[in-house]
């Protein structure tokens, strides 16, 4: 993706963040209280129309931004914390300690296990167990990202341990803890942290996808996936606006976050030719995901 594209993505992403923060002050209607107008097509009073219960689609879409972003942020932070802990256990040998070696292998297999569970099924299971609500969705979205961060950190720790710095720290006589916390981790976290910014876009998408399938937040809470899913029934009868507008906003947001995230990552980890091509692959993946949601919508 070229520079201009990324700049544009940053700009749109930034503007939309403003929108999320300023949401309650700019929405013309209360996103949770129906108006008298039911299934109105887009007009001056309802720029994106209204849905079957009379909610203003524009207001709900703007308000939903907060919900989705909040869930995605919480999930990414949560998965980052858990991922770093697991990554350290899986990737660092603690001076060839036997106990940590076994623990590390166990964590590796655990990560395999986690990655083999389909997220939608997991989301449904969580919702079935703990009820619909933010904690369940956050847990499900975080669950998907934990192995990603853990694996990233694991591999950078593994290569760091073969490098000179760890050897040098040991030979100087630093304890394993000091070596890890003062030298190895700070120098290995870059790529993991940088990838968190990219993961945010994906997390938003996943949040919406879970809601779309009915495993998301409880209905009155404004949420994109729920909105799209609720409107999908009306598309065949011509009331396209309920699904299409939030769908477009969702796609735009996710793509912008993915691109902006890549810019942040490259700036953090020093862009190289190899990394840039890897980024291109991920952008494609993000776009395919977006297409899928669009098709669902």
């Amino acid at each position: 993706m070229n520079k201009v594209g990324r700049r544009l993505a940053m700009l749109v992403g930034g503007l939309s963040l403003l929108l999320a923060v300023a949401g309650p002050w700019i929405t013309p209607y209360d996103p949770e209280r129906p108006t008298a107008d039911v299934l109105m097509s887009p007009s001056a009073s309802h720029p994106m129309g209204t849905d079957a219960s009379g909610l203003d689609v524009f207001s709900v879409t703007v308000a939903a931004y907060r919900t989705d972003l909040l869930i995605a942020l919480a999930a990414v932070v949560l998965s980052l914390v858990v991922g770093i802990v697991l990554g350290v256990l899986a990737g660092y040998s603690f001076g060839g300690s036997r106990a940590f070696g076994i623990l590390g292998k166990a964590v590796d297999r655990l990560l395999d296990l986690v990655q083999s569970i389909p997220v939608v099924i997991l989301g449904l299971a969580l919702v079935a167990t703990f009820g619909r609500g933010m904690p369940s969705v956050i847990a499900a979205v975080a669950f998907v990202n934990v192995p990603v961060f853990a694996r990233l950190l694991r591999s950078s720790l593994k290569s760091a341990e073969r490098g000179g710095l760890v050897q040098a720290c040991r030979s100087v006589g630093l304890s394993e803890r000091a070596t890890l916390l003062r030298h190895v981790l700070p120098n290995s976290l870059d790529s993991t942290l940088a990838n968190a910014s990219v993961a945010l876009g994906g997390a938003i998408l996943l949040t919406a996808a879970l809601s779309f399938l009915g495993a998301g937040v409880r209905p009155p809470t404004p949420e994109w996936g729920a909105l799209i899913s609720g409107g999908a029934n009306y598309v065949p009868t011509g009331q396209w606006w309920i699904s299409v507008f939030p769908g477009l906003v969702l796609s735009l947001t996710v793509v912008c976050f993915a691109l902006a995230g890549e810019s942040v990552r490259d700036r953090l980890s020093g862009a190289s030719g190899r990394k840039r091509s890897a980024d291109a692959g991920q952008t494609d993946a993000a776009q395919t995901d977006t297409d899928t949601v669009m098709r669902l919508a």
């Binding site: 000179g164 710095l165 050897q167 040098a168 030979s171 100087v172 120098n187």
Partner: peptide, 12 residues
């Protein structure tokens, strides 16, 4: 004490 071949990688 030890001195390694490559100072670039052995210093933080």
């Amino acid at each position: 004490q030890f001195v390694f071949q490559d100072p670039t990688s052995s210093l933080d």
